[in-house]
Write a protein that binds this DNA or RNA. Structure first.
Length: 285
DNA sequence: CCAGTGATGCACT
DNA sequence: GTGCATCACTGGC
């Protein structure tokens, strides 16, 4: 009754929300959707939210170690393309203390944006949490799920779209990864510290990977294109790689149609994948 | 190996 | 108050 103003513009279902800082109602999606807004949109606040976070200027050493970083054009492609292209690439993390962690990406999922019922941006919803999904391709989106676990995403070309990185094959900094994971487990059940995790158990799941790689919520809104803590490199070793395309995990509540779309991708036969889809795999032969 | 389940706290009806 | 884009553990094969 009161706000039927989007019928003349787009199909977007604009929802309102509260900013965490002030009680100001958002009324838009992003950049170009900013129009006349009945005075309830605080544009300055929106633009501040959409701004990429940046680190202090990088040192020559830092410039050197991330010289092989993949550029903006790698991320500026449709979501499903990025999700598949990113398989086999090397995710590199530089910790504050200088330690380098590396892993080969072996499992991803696409979240297509405003049309995708399983996406946080379904119907163009904007919240303080999901803003990174509307930002430039390559923007990092980390959120907390089930109260205690992190998921790491990278925004892609379409509005509100992002790729979820689910699993890595650990390549470098494995001792540090074990330490990170043990610390986490230790806080719950100290006995388990004695058990050494297998390499393929370090990063075979979205949250395990975040723990091993020390990827946290505060890293949201940084860009894979210029933050010197995290980037992706091409894999010089081009190995044979079959890709399995199957339904995504953990989105049952999105309804049958979207829950069944084959938007999860993983390297066939790889030990570090979080969960095989045996039905789909059987159909490959 | 696999399915079932409790934990846990934040984001948002 | 409800619902998670998960994990670690358990007990069954």
């Amino acid at each position: 009754m009161k706000e039927g103003n989007n019928k003349s513009t787009q199909k977007l279902n604009l929802k309102s929300l509260l900013s965490p800082q002030k009680k100001i109602t958002y009324k838009l999606i992003a950049e170009s959707d900013v129009k006349k807004s009945k005075g309830i949109v605080d544009l300055k606040l929106i633009k501040a939210d959409l701004q990429q976070l940046k680190d202090p200027p990088i040192t020559p050493w830092e410039r050197k170690i991330c010289a092989n970083r993949l550029p903006f054009s790698f991320y500026n492609v449709p979501c499903t393309i990025l999700a598949k292209n990113i398989l086999g690439k090397i995710l590199v993390r530089k910790l504050d203390n200088g330690i380098i962690l590396k892993g080969k990406i072996v499992e991803t999922e696409s979240y297509l944006g405003i049309a995708d019922k399983a996406s946080h941006t379904y119907q163009g919803k904007v919240t303080p949490r999901n803003i990174p999904m509307y930002m430039l391709p390559g923007t990092i989106y980390v959120y907390i799920t089930y109260g205690m676990y992190h998921c790491f995403n990278i925004s892609s070309q379409e509005k509100g779209s992002a790729v979820l990185i689910r699993s890595l094959e650990p390549l470098e900094g494995i001792a540090q990864m074990r330490e990170n994971r043990n610390d986490k487990v230790h806080s719950k059940s100290p006995k388990k510290l004695l058990k050494e995790l297998k390499i393929h158990d370090l990063c075979n799941g979205p949250s395990k990977m975040c723990i091993s790689m020390q990827i946290e919520k505060k890293h949201s809104k940084y860009s894979m294109c210029d933050w010197n803590g995290l980037w992706i490199e091409d894999n010089v070793i081009q190995e044979e790689m079959k890709i399995v395309e199957c339904p995504r995990i953990g989105i049952k509540s999105a309804g049958d149609e979207w829950a069944h779309k084959p938007l999860r991708y993983y390297v066939y036969g790889h030990k570090c994948v979080s969960k095989r889809d045996k039905i789909i795999e059987a159909a490959l032969f």
